[in-house]
Amino acid sequence: MTKEELSVSQYGRYIKLFIALVSGYMLPYLFGHKELSASMATSAWLSLALGPSISNSRAYFVQRFMTNLVPILGGTIIFIITRHGFITMMIVTLFMFVLMSKFPNRFRLTSLGVSLTLITGIGGNFTAGGERLISVWLGMAVGFFIECYILPPDQGFKMKKMLTDMEKKIIKIYYRLLHDRTLTSLKGFKIDELTEELKKIEAQMAGFNKDFSIKWAKHLKKYEKDIDFFKYSIELLEVSVRFLQKVCLFENDLTELSEEEKKYLFVNISEVVKKHEKLLLSFYETTENTEYEEEHFLEQNMDILISYLAEYQDTVRKISKEMYKAE
């Protein structure tokens, strides 16, 4: 398993969680603050819990810390005034509901319950409240540092793998279609599942873009030249899936076509497959070309790819019209 593959795998996630747990616990322990060990270890762990993603880790860092800071700080002050833990908790709870409705991206509802119940235990003790906030902040910082610099998730590698795997499936379906020359062969492939896979790829692209935009994610900068290719690969897959879905819809009607019409139809489908493979080959030749740094190289090749894609879409539309003849 390569470093890139490990960084986005479940095993890589376990490694980072273990490091976060040990680091979060041992750091305050070694500096003589044993009372903070459990809280720091929990915070370090939680900052990695949303999966291998720097953007998710950063968002959780901000949300969880703010969800601790505002209730504990505000609750400590209100407790000094009311001298009643339950009343303080109710006031802070209602205030946080209003605040979270106004700023939903700055707070985390799942972390709020612990903060609210801690108010009754902390009371007006600023020292206890400060220790809680320090342990949360430092613990989250430890976890975020681990996510950024110790086996940072390579979202670009995962993106390429997901695209390659789905492209292989599409080509396999096309080959089966042309070999059997009947639409019943598509029943062995779950075309609807391709739509779900495509949604996962689009979600992965969104995650990649978020991580790529973060300045700490320097390990992703090597994929800067691939962003356009990711986008057009997804567009290619979208066109292919829509086409295969349309083919499946006309399975029964195909029997009503004459042999000449069937022959013409599969000749056109063969054109789609050739254009699809030509486009894929162009993608990989361009992304792997060693002359990438030459001026205008990327711009020229992207124009070619876009023209290929337009031609591919035109061919798909032409075949779709042939399908409607079967109605």
Results as ranks from 00 to 15, higher is better:
107 F>P: 11
107 F>G: 06
108 R>F: 15
108 R>Q: 15
109 L>A: 14
109 L>F: 15
109 L>D: 00
113 G>Y: 12
113 G>Q: 13
114 V>F: 06
115 S>R: 03
117 T>N: 10
119 I>N: 05
119 I>Q: 02
119 I>A: 06
121 G>V: 03
123 G>I: 04
123 G>W: 01
127 T>C: 15
128 A>Y: 04
129 G>A: 08
132 R>S: 14
133 L>V: 07
134 I>T: 12
136 V>R: 04
136 V>N: 07
137 W>K: 14
138 L>R: 15
139 G>Y: 07
139 G>N: 14
140 M>F: 10
140 M>H: 11
140 M>L: 13
144 F>Y: 14
146 I>F: 03
147 E>Y: 05
152 P>E: 09
152 P>Q: 10
158 K>W: 01
159 M>H: 01
160 K>W: 00
161 K>Y: 06
161 K>W: 03
162 M>P: 06
162 M>E: 12
165 D>R: 02
165 D>Q: 07
165 D>K: 01
165 D>M: 04
167 E>S: 06
170 I>S: 00
174 Y>W: 13
175 Y>D: 10
176 R>L: 12
177 L>F: 10
180 D>G: 09
185 S>N: 10
186 L>Y: 04
186 L>Q: 12
190 K>M: 09
191 I>Q: 08
192 D>W: 15
195 T>A: 14
196 E>D: 11
196 E>P: 03
198 L>W: 12
203 A>C: 08
203 A>F: 10
206 A>M: 08
207 G>F: 05
208 F>R: 01
210 K>Y: 10
211 D>I: 04
213 S>E: 08
213 S>L: 09
214 I>A: 06
214 I>Y: 02
214 I>E: 09
217 A>W: 01
221 K>Y: 14
223 Y>P: 03
224 E>H: 12
224 E>A: 13
225 K>D: 02
227 I>Y: 08
227 I>L: 04
227 I>D: 00
230 F>N: 00
230 F>D: 01
232 Y>L: 09
232 Y>D: 14
